[in-house]
Design a binder for these strands. Structure first.
Lengths: 244, 244
DNA sequence: TCTCTTTATGGTCCTGTTGACTATAAAGAG
DNA sequence: CTCTTTATAGTCAACAGGACCATAAAGAGA
């Protein structure tokens, strides 16, 4: 990117740029990820992250949005959370050619069904974890792990969890998001105190109430707040070891 | 990355892949960044982040390490902190051609002097901030801002600050890192209590002591600890607004 | 209808963390 | 010798957060 002669030297190296998407949702109280089944070699028959090429006239973000719409079947994905995770560029990561892939994490509310994109044999929401669909094709195990680490950490210090919820949600539903992603149970009363007490995290909808799980007292409804950063953060319980 | 015919279609599009580096250090108690002066159009005479092409047989990480060694003049950069920030891929970000750039943030202890790389008119450590060297070439203002945001946030919940320090340092020097990056003063006694009380952040070197600023009581020496994540984090003072 | 279960929500108690502050130690400057 | 500077120990009060209890309000099942 510095000198003209360098452009002559490297400009036409066969670099392909793709995007890979780790699309998460909460389904039945558990974290799920959208995967596609590969129809062709290499890795035919294995599961992989959805993705595709970045076209010459679009950014990686545009390509990711396009792919997300394609895979989820939604016409408008502008309201969904879509964020870049990192870029994978090991020379041997695709046996066919030199492919640099920009990975994204997407968070969506529970959707009716997965749709197989045009370039995949099948698509499905599968529970996240060390499950039977592993290993994924290419370096997608690592990409998926990195994407999960990112969202798990961001739940602590951002209002990201609301991206998993519909526009109006109860605090019980929001708590289930944290519990599903972190794999830990949270005390409902303490969770409520913290969430309601944090300015800008959620916004109460006056008078509105709805049943959460078909049983129990109807819960008040909330909307996502405007705060992006949480100070202090909503720490998850003993992830690796407290200080003392 | 899915189907063979897609490779035929897109593989030879003129995508160039580069790395751009935001190299930070603490100098005279202030955060500095390594910049190079462009010798050629476009943006000739303006400051830019150091960087260069990713070669066909290397990853973006390898390219970043190579560039870091080149710009700092160090033979071995394996001990330095170098981390991917994000990837910039807007179609128009380089007026000459389609360039996708993977940005990195590097943290180094104070180094003797900057060295102009082969492809730059000059190189210098300049104080970070809204200074006279702005605007930078290309979209480097945004890249530099994103890299700064990343390290500022990571100081809170990781032991990253030790990457700015030499192998043996005093707590006063470590505190200056936080103060320089955050632009806020920290209470020395409280800082010490927190840092020493956090398992794995720093490790005392028994018996060793050294003067910090030429004056005052000699301070005990510490080494970087093994902890990467801090629980609970070392929060910086009132960044945008406390909860209550 | 009555009771049990379930979920929501408000409150209390206790402990650990943290900011503000004071005091003392140990060096150089003048 | 005194003042300034930095390091380091300690105290105190406010606050946040985990554990826990109590009550409200719904459906399920007898």
């Amino acid at each position: 990117m510095r000198e003209s002669q360098e452009y002559d030297k490297y400009a036409h190296e066969p670099f392909a740029v793709t995007v890979d998407l780790a699309v998460f949702t909460i389904r039945d109280g558990a974290l799920h990820v959208l995967l596609v089944e590969r129809g062709q070699e290499p890795y035919a028959g294995q599961w992989a992250l959805p993705g595709g090429f970045v076209l010459p006239d679009e950014s990686a973000e545009s390509a990711a949005q396009r792919e997300l719409a394609e895979e989820t079947g939604l016409a408008d994905v502008s309201g969904l959370h879509l964020e870049q995770v990192r870029t994978y560029s090991d020379p041997g990561r695709d046996p066919r050619m030199r492919v640099v892939s920009v990975a994204f994490a997407a968070l969506v509310p529970d959707l009716p069904e997965a749709r197989a994109g045009g370039d995949a044999a099948g698509a499905a929401w599968l529970p996240y974890g060390p499950a039977a669909y592993r290993p994924l094709a290419f370096d997608h195990d690592r990409i998926l792990g990195d994407a999960y680490d990112r969202i798990r950490a961001k739940l602590e210090y951002t209002g990201l969890a609301t991206a998993f919820c519909p526009p109006e949600f109860t605090l019980g539903e929001l708590r289930q998001v944290y519990e599903a992603v972190w794999g830990a149970e949270l005390d409902p009363a303490n969770f409520r105190r913290k969430v309601v007490g944090t300015a800008g995290l959620v916004e109460a909808i006056p008078g509105a109430a709805r049943l959460t799980g078909g049983r129990g007292k109807p819960a008040a409804l909330f909307r996502a707040g405007t705060a992006t950063a949480l100070h202090p953060p909503l720490l998850r319980p003993t992830p690796e070891g407290p200080s003392s």
